[in-house]
Simulated assay, not measured.
Amino acid sequence: MNYEELIHKTALADERLLVMTAENRALIRNLPGPLGPRFIDTGITEQTMIGAAAGLALRGRVPVVHALATFLTLRAFEFIRTDVGIPHLPVKISAFVPGFLSDGNGPTHQAIEDVSLMRGIPGMTVFAPADEQDMLAMLPAIWASPDPAYLRVNTRPATYQHAPFEMGKAEIVAEGTDITLLTYGMLFEQALIAKDLLIEAGYSVGLVNLRSLKPLDEAAVLDVVKGGSLVVTLEDHFQTGGLYSILAELLLEHELTAKVLPLALKERWYKPGLLSEVLEYEGFTGQHIARRIGERLGDGAHTFGAKTKVVENEFAE
């Protein structure tokens, strides 16, 4: 089953669900016929779409809206905050090509501050699946929730068999005493590679797929911190406002400190290209991640394996 099949099946079972798009049909191109009036394309009007979705939600509907992540979170931010966030309406935002998945596009189309913006809205939930399998596992719970939700859409094929999804719970892939990688979204794929390379080099390595940035599995993160390993926050997002900031806020709240290595975009947009080129140039392949962690631990001489192979992004705009 893919995204389109799941939303179609859900809509047939629940007449409240509506599918909306701002002229971006890559995920839902076959649904206008089967859904009829419950498929609404507003054209290239993200603000209008969010406003209309809020009005429909006020009348008992559950709109699932679709557009490019950068335009939803930037162009329509005020509408999400005011029309959806303040009245706490169950509008579900499916944000297309977030982070590095917008690989072929320049800064205007790069949603690398989206987590920061969306988690700042009171009551908004924020989800970032590791791959398509992870996304399909979490969507039924997201769509059934009464809360507004922001989803970083990820249709990349799974390279790991995920545990069942539970709202607000992280997926503990491995536990380690030397290093623990905390990550979300498409970089989980590279984190798995980095974990294996570091284990081959003799390190005890943990890996946590957070799945949800809000609600955050605070207990899982605090367990990692208290374990004393080097905590690596890995994300295709600005360092400011993303996972590194979330971790800092949590540590301060609990009067804790930790050894932390943030791997994120620091005060810059990324250079566009094929996904493999972006990850290589920006230093986010599994090999680069392992090497950067090794350097932090004083193991700068280790090469950490061969160059990582990356499957290109099928849906780059």
Rank of each mutant, 00 (worst) to 15 (best):
K9M: 08
G168F: 01
R292E: 03
P87H: 07
L243C: 02
L222P: 04
A76V: 06
M20P: 06
T48E: 14
L210N: 01
F315L: 11
I7Y: 00
A11C: 13
R38I: 13
E282A: 10
Q110A: 05
E113D: 14
L234D: 12
A194Q: 05
T308K: 04
A57W: 04
L247C: 09
A137N: 11
E280S: 12
D299N: 12
T45E: 13
H288E: 06
V278H: 02
T180R: 05
P90Q: 12
Q110Y: 02
G106A: 15
Y270I: 04
F165Y: 15
F284K: 08
L101R: 11
A306P: 14
F39N: 05
L250Y: 04
T108R: 07
Q287R: 15
T285V: 00
A220K: 09
L263K: 05
G120S: 14
I28N: 01
P37Y: 09
E280N: 12
A264I: 10
L252F: 10
T108G: 06
Q161K: 12
V19H: 09
A76E: 06
S212L: 02
T308F: 06
G104V: 00
E166L: 10
D134H: 00
A54K: 06
A130D: 01
I289P: 12
G300M: 06
R16D: 11
T180D: 01
L216C: 03
P215F: 00
E132R: 11
M124E: 10
K259H: 13
T233R: 01
T48G: 14
I80N: 02
D223F: 02
F165A: 02
L139I: 15
L216T: 11
A52G: 10
L247S: 05
G168W: 02
A144V: 00
G99Y: 01
L17T: 15
G99H: 04
M49S: 06
P157H: 11
I86P: 07
G123P: 13
I7Q: 07
A54H: 04
K169C: 01
I142Q: 07
V153N: 04
R119P: 08
